[in-house]
Design a protein around this nucleic acid. Structure first.
Lengths: 205, 205
DNA sequence: GTTTAAATTAAACGTTTGTTTAACTTTGTC
DNA sequence: GACAAAGTTAAACAAACGTTTAATTTAAAC
């Protein structure tokens, strides 16, 4: 999957506009204008607006996959949790606007290609977190009886909530800039999720 | 705010369609057809499509407010957490499709009226959870140093994640019907969030 | 330098969008 | 039963939508 300069202009323009106005709220003319290309170029290169979204997501999806090899090097189960959360949040946060619109689009309609690719991504990440937890349980570090699906949902949902309610949370947390908000997510929020998972996995009752 | 039969037909039709196709993805003709009314009736009664969404949300927003009086009767801090989570999830779950589209819409653009009402709602619920936690800390039941904003985000985000990825989660949890899924949210998911919050608030490190 | 394919353009395509109009029917009031 | 207001309708509105066309320019190959 390699694109020429103009195609990348279009993909990046689409990313910016989808993130602020959503898929349906963005017209191909908006994208063409933002990318400084003729309207017809979008259909010429990508076929259709729907296929542009599909292509776009497939272009980005590898960035969201949790790197298993990296985790394999870590022995301590608690450290593994920390690392996994850290990498997950960092990758989602670096393309958080894309993650935002993909979540919205695949939740609204079953756009086949996007939803299928998104499903594979979630499945991969779910399997990673499952194996990390199971390993910790086997080592006797973690208590059993916790469904990885719920922990995965908690992590993803808490992060997504920071995406979807960002203006409310910026206000509440008294954060002025977007960059400071991004930093907050990669420090305080990350630590919170790490702490939450570890608290859960070692909780008595 | 009282509506006649036909207006309620329109509001309910809009709720169904917005939930499945989103706001931008739903046309006024779709709504008119679903509600078995003429297209012009929507503008006649609500002014515009945007105002319909505003009116719609203001119509439903009281259902999402956590009832403070109910919580005041409970003395034990842990029980109070349980009750608060239970009521929050139940109210969101009973109108979960609406909550879904409101979150999406207010995250995409600053629809003034909707966002303002939604902001007030979140502020109210955040204050409730803050006071419950602070009370528990004052009683010595909870450890201090936990930001209520993060706990609130975790609860809302985890629930919302079950809304936005429901087809993926239905598959993973091997749940066949929507009603069974709703029941899962009100039992297993609710217990998970309750446990998570209590684990956090009593966690050592 | 000619030929062929790819890239790019402005214009037009047919639909669909939200909204308004103007005619008509129903309902309630005196 | 006449009158006014409210409710309801089919039709039309202009604007925006995604997409396609046909003409033109650019680039590459021989």
């Amino acid at each position: 999957m390699d694109f020429n300069e103009k195609q990348i202009d279009i993909l990046l323009a689409a990313e910016r506009l989808f993130a602020t106005k959503g898929f349906d709220g963005t017209s191909v003319r908006d994208i063409a204008h933002e990318a400084n290309v003729n309207v017809a170029m979008i259909n010429y290169y990508f076929g259709s607006k729907d296929k542009l979204l599909d292509t776009f997501f497939e272009w980005r999806v590898p960035d969201f996959m949790i790197n298993v090899d990296e985790l394999a090097l870590i022995e301590n189960a608690l450290d593994k949790i920390d690392a996994m959360v850290d990498r997950s949040i960092k990758s989602m946060n670096s393309h958080r606007k894309l993650y935002h619109i993909i979540t919205i689009e695949s939740s609204l309609k079953q756009r086949m290609l996007v939803s299928a690719a998104f499903r594979k991504l979630k499945l991969h990440n779910l399997e990673v977190i499952s194996s990390v937890i199971n390993e910790g349980v086997a080592q006797g570090v973690f208590k059993g009886g916790n469904d990885p699906i719920l922990i995965h949902s908690m992590m993803m949902g808490t992060f997504m909530n920071f995406q979807m309610n960002y203006s409310f949370l910026q206000e509440q947390l008294r954060i002025a800039s977007d960059t400071e908000y991004a930093r907050y997510i990669e420090t305080t929020l990350t630590q919170f999720i790490q702490k939450t998972i570890k608290a859960l996995l070692t909780y008595e009752k």
